[in-house]
Design a protein around this nucleic acid. Structure first.
Length: 283
DNA sequence: AAACAAACCTGTGCGC
DNA sequence: TGCGCACAGGTTTGTT
């Protein structure tokens, strides 16, 4: 579920609350969550370390440790990262727990990785060996927020592929961080149909797409991301975002278009994903 | 190279 | 009320 804006919101929470903390004990409850290595590797890699920073690339959370290793967390569809006072009841599907020591101004707390569908993962890796240990992370395209994506760079990407825009935006090797909600919202903002071909856009359309990527992602981050009806996505402190109120097309099949007030939002399927757009103002 | 399908899991909402 | 099916924010793998 979480895409770039949601992961960025979690990252900011980690920066505020977790960076600088020392990790005492570590518990791994479900092996599948640490399947890239093993429970022992994650426990040993985290125990008695200090978390130095909270970074993000695409949908990957990356926390450098004082050991020289990094903690990588990917939420996939249903993962959550939460902080809570030590001793609080843990929600169902809490698979990894980091005990954060208290200090002069903070009580001891726990960092929980919660994930009903267990697609998410937690791994401790050596950043000098990332291409071998986490090849998908090493192969990520540019992150429009963390690294920036200038117009000439986007043009080069669009013109070097001959692909439909929706699958192209969802491809993490091409651009990192955009998922199903924001791909649709970006294409709506750019007034481009999801099946337009990347190397057939006018220079003006390329510019609109570039503007839309930055505008939609930035505004979604400013709103704390999108929390849908199931409240699956919440930030580190359990708070939902509000960008769902700004959605113009995602989840709005059959509704009148908020942009043109004339068209009706249509749902199709692309890359096995629901795709929403306004056939009148997106061309 | 790009489109397409299936797989990995669990939970929820809907029609009947 | 209960059952079965469709569907869900992601990514990998394998096939056309």
């Amino acid at each position: 579920m979480p895409e770039l804006p949601e992961v960025e919101t979690v990252r900011r929470g980690l920066e505020r609350r977790v960076v600088g903390r020392h990790v005492g004990a570590v518990e791994v409850g479900r092996e599948r969550t640490v399947r890239r290595t093993s429970p022992e590797a994650v426990v040993h890699g985290l125990t008695d370390t200090t978390i130095l920073a909270a970074n993000r690339r695409g949908k990957y959370l990356l926390l450098p440790l004082d050991s020289g290793d990094e903690l990588m967390i990917h939420l996939r569809m249903s993962g959550q990262v939460l902080v809570a006072p030590t001793g609080n009841d843990r929600p169902p599907h809490t698979h990894v727990v980091l005990h954060l020591d208290g200090d002069a101004d903070r009580p001891a707390e726990e960092l929980w990785f919660v994930d009903p569908r267990t697609f998410g993962e937690v791994v401790v890796f050596d950043p000098d060996n990332v291409a071998v240990e986490i090849p998908d992370l090493a192969a990520l395209g540019p992150d429009p927020i963390a690294e920036g994506l200038a117009l000439p760079q986007l043009r080069a990407i669009l013109r070097s592929h001959r692909r439909q825009l929706k699958p192209l935006l969802l491809d993490q090797h091409v651009i990192a961080g955009i998922g199903n909600i924001y791909a649709d919202e970006i294409l709506h903002e750019a007034r481009l149909r999801p099946d337009r071909i990347s190397d057939e856009l006018s220079t003006m359309s390329e510019r609109r797409l570039h503007d839309a990527i930055h505008r939609v992602l930035s505004e979604a981050i400013a709103s704390g991301g999108s929390t849908l009806g199931d409240a699956q996505y919440v930030d580190l402190f359990g708070e939902g975002g509000s960008y769902q109120d700004e959605h113009h097309v995602y989840g709005r099949e059959g509704e009148r278009c908020r942009t043109c007030g004339v068209g009706w939002i249509r749902r199709t399927v692309s890359v096995q994903r629901s795709t929403f757009y306004c056939p009148r103002c997106q061309r």
